[in-house]
Every structure is written in C-alpha cells, then in structure tokens.
C-alpha cells in the first residue's frame, strides 16, 4: 500500500502514462514493462500499481477495456486518452525542469 520510497512523488503517474503511450497494456504487462525499461533499476511494488492505474482512469487520462490477452484470458487493458496525452506532455515538461534543477544543484562543486 505504501508509496515506493525510491520514486519521487508523482513520478509513478508519469512512468505509467509514458508506458501506456507506447501501446495499450494490462496491469501485469505494465509492471513487467516498468521493470524491463528501467533496467530493473526502479522497483515499483505491485501493491501501488493498481491504485495508481485506477486513479489515472478516474482522472480520465487513461481508459480501460476488457480484451482477450495474448494467452487467451480476459484482461483489463489500459490505453492513453487524448487528455492523458496532454497530461503526459505536461508531466514530462515538469519532470525535465525538475530534473535539470536538481542536477544543477547536485553538480555544484564544493569550494
């Protein structure tokens, strides 16, 4: 239930939006892709994944659809909406600004 401490607040939303921007996926695939893409660097617990997905759906940024999965079982696939795409752009811009600012501080040489 607890938010992963190694993820900056709100970053999970950004990651999920980004992953779903590439293709519609179900929850399990999202978690796999997350680990794979971050080179196992980012450990998102399964516990925080679904609440986050539901919240994004509630916000109208992603929409869900029940489809048959690759193994023939019914699964809930999430897909980015138009509003979600805009939100992704906003969040990406935010993230870049934040990251740049933090890097700038971190790189300051101690005198």
């Amino acid at each position: 239930m607890s938010k992963p401490s190694d993820l900056v607040q709100g970053t999970l939303d950004l990651l999920l939006l980004k992953i779903l921007a590439l293709e519609p996926l179900h929850g399990w695939a999202v978690s796999q892709r997350l680990q794979q893409m971050s080179g196992e660097e980012l450990q998102v617990s399964d516990g925080s994944l679904y609440p986050a997905l539901h919240k994004l759906e509630q916000e109208g940024w992603i929409k869900a659809e029940w489809k048959t999965s690759e193994l023939g079982r019914r699964a809930k696939f999430y897909e980015l909406t138009r509003a979600g795409r805009k939100q992704l752009e906003r969040e990406t811009a935010n993230w870049e600004r934040l990251a740049a600012a933090i890097s700038a501080i971190v790189r300051l040489r101690e005198v």
């Binding site: 239930m1 617990s45 399964d46 516990g47 679904y50 609440p51 539901h54 919240k55 509630q58």
Partner: peptide
Amino acid sequence: AIGGLDQQKDACRDAR
C-alpha cells in the same frame, strides 16, 4: 508482492 488482496481492493476504491 501485491500486499494483501483486500487491502489492494480498498486502496483501489480509495483511488476511485
């Protein structure tokens, strides 16, 4: 990993 099915459901409901 999923941290308890019922808690998970509660968290999702909260998220809604």
